[in-house]
Nucleic acid binder design. Structure first.
Lengths: 212, 212
DNA sequence: GGTTAAGCGGAACGACGAATTCGCTTACGA
DNA sequence: TCGTAAGCGAATTCGTCGTTCCGCTTAACC
């Protein structure tokens, strides 16, 4: 995977490759900080390039957002994979959720994109399925260990993360870190001790795929 | 309170009063359905008036949004007051949260406004404090009955509602009613059985007031 | 080093929405 | 019923943003 990045950049002229790198970094910083409504001009300024230079690599703003979003999902998937291998699986699950929630909180653009149709793009669906597969292994082990109620599944985790991050963003300015409190409550809700029957069936892969 | 509305409208010419009523209803419908980003033109069209007619009553779009938002908070406060009097307080709490979450789901404009600085307006702060006071009575009784963990407070409820509603809105189009599942998980997280220590202190009134 | 085309950036375009203005309409009170 | 001021809506202004265009620059290759 890492070996493919140079291959793409090698086809570019040196200055173009340099600009692409600057654009990607600037986009990450600006979108994380200001959300997906940051203007292309803002990103271009941060990268020290003109707006047209961005459009040469990304035909539309959506394409740029998708690239950033895909990176974000991939990072989460990697975190989940690591957590699934940990010894203390209960602790690993909590830590995964904490890191993932923190990542959401530090990337407003990611949260914004998760609410759009960007998630229907095939390349993002693939990353998302990776994430789900890894989260599923983590969750299966946690259930075996009696740390998690039986009636939740891997699709619930990103949903709960978005919920917590959203509540957190509402409060972040005034009460930094408040999201941790709400993540704690949600994590307690995932434990077997308090489990009452859930009133809706769990999500399935098809629920998150394009209509049809 | 209800007696003041006619007093305001009586000072208006008959056609103006009629238009105001149509504007309020149109704004409610359009904002609920399309969120606070619905244009003034859209609301005006729905009301069957011109945009300037709205601006005569509401100097800015924010003022209109605030009026709608205030209504929404007032409705929630009333629901909380009713729930606080119910016999089976555990059931009443769950029902309050379910109704409140459903109300959030049916009013995108409300959710949008809750994320802006509109909540710092004094008239809305007053309504919100009403809501908190009522929720506090409900919660106190639920704790006595052993239905709710001791370390949550009334300020947690609107936060959790926003979290659930937000997750719900992400899924609503593809999986209608999915929010109920996530509300169930959150409600289980509020029960005493699974309670682990929360990592952040509860919110207080000052955390939600204007800076300073 | 010269040729060439890819790459560059800033200016310009078109769309859109909030807010304002203005000339016509209409409800109300004397 | 009539004069008038409040009310009305369409058109306009103003600012923002995504996207495109065009003349200049510069890296790459022989």
């Amino acid at each position: 995977m890492a070996s493919e990045v140079p291959r793409v950049e090698q086809r570019l002229r040196a200055d173009a490759a340099r600009n692409l790198a600057r654009i990607l970094e600037a986009a990450h910083v600006v979108l994380a900080e200001r959300g997906s409504e940051a203007s292309m001009a803002e990103i271009a300024a941060r990268a020290g390039v003109g707006t047209a230079t961005i459009y040469r690599r990304f035909p539309t703003k959506d394409d740029l957002l998708a690239a950033m979003f895909e990176q974000g999902v991939a990072r989460l998937a990697a975190e989940a994979a690591a957590a699934a291998e940990a010894k203390d699986v209960g602790r690993a699950l909590r830590q995964f959720m904490q890191r993932a929630a923190a990542a959401h909180m530090q990337d407003r653009g990611y949260c914004d994109c998760a609410e759009t149709n960007l998630k229907l793009r095939p390349e993002i669906q693939r990353r998302f399925e990776e994430l789900i597969a890894n989260a599923d292994r983590l969750l299966a082990r946690a259930k075996e260990a009696g740390e998690v109620r039986e009636d939740v599944n891997a699709y619930d985790l990103p949903v709960l993360l978005m919920a917590v991050a959203h509540a957190g963003l509402l409060l972040e300015e005034r009460v930094p870190g408040a999201w941790k409190r709400y993540l704690d409550i949600v994590l307690d809700g995932l434990r077997p001790e308090a489990a009452r029957p859930l009133s809706r069936r769990p999500l399935a892969a098809r629920d998150l795929r394009p209509p049809g």
